[in-house]
């Protein structure tokens, strides 16, 4: 028994040095050297200031922007640290709603959101990703259908033709890798940054 204690204690210290310090620090060095943009969080810089990460979704409410999906992330209540409050797209506290499929709260929420969206664009069925929260609460993407669904609203708010906006959506639609892997998606933040770049006023 006793002769196992020395190797056990020494090994855990040595493994900590090898896999817990040398490995992650070497990886950090290599990553910073080879892929500095990705290694630092794929930040987008506009006018010298970071305005977000291409990988992390943001909340959008304005009519002239494409909206991201509902988000269930929370934050500590500033008034009472033992409670949490809703804080969509809180990128320092990721998480989903964890509502089960038979939850009354889930169905109530979806019903209200779907009714609002159906009123906004009665011509299309509501895409399911626009009424469901993502697993991370930080989903940067929506489906192409969800982007097309929002085209009439965005075009009207910006005074653009629907065709022009639709072209922009098409340009931002990323297909499956090699035609097989993953799902087609549209990165909302990049799309909205380009919308701003069209130099038309943002309708609020």
């Amino acid at each position: 028994m006793l002769h196992h204690i020395r190797p056990a204690c020494t090994m855990i210290v040595l493994m900590t040095i090898v896999t817990g310090l040398a490995y992650p620090l070497a990886m950090t060095g290599a990553a910073q050297l080879l892929f500095p943009r990705q290694a630092n969080g794929s930040l987008i810089v506009r006018d010298g200031k970071p305005i977000g990460s291409t990988l992390i979704g943001q909340a959008f409410a304005g009519e002239g922007y494409f909206h991201t999906r509902p988000s269930a992330t929370t934050d500590t209540d500033p008034a009472d640290a033992t409670k949490t409050i809703a804080a969509p797209y809180n990128a320092a506290n990721s998480g989903g709603s964890n509502l089960g499929p038979t939850s009354q709260a889930l169905i109530d929420r979806v019903k209200a959101d779907a009714a609002a969206l159906a009123a906004e664009n009665p011509a299309m069925p509501v895409p399911v990703d626009l009424v469901t929260t993502s697993a991370s609460g930080l989903d940067p993407d929506i489906t192409p259908a969800a982007a097309l669904f929002q085209v009439p609203r965005v075009a009207k708010a910006r005074g653009l033709t629907q065709d022009r906006v639709r072209q922009l959506v098409a340009a931002h639609t990323e297909g499956r890798l090699a035609g097989i892997i993953g799902e087609p998606h549209v990165n909302v933040l990049l799309l909205n940054v380009d919308l701003d770049g069209l130099a038309f006023p943002v309708g609020k």
């Binding site: 989903g96 709603s97 889930l106 469901t132």
Partner: peptide
């Protein structure tokens, strides 16, 4: 609820 039925269960998915 007027939701596209082909989307599947997207609650809690990316």
């Amino acid at each position: 609820l007027h939701i596209d039925p082909l989307g599947g269960n997207m609650e809690g998915k990316e």
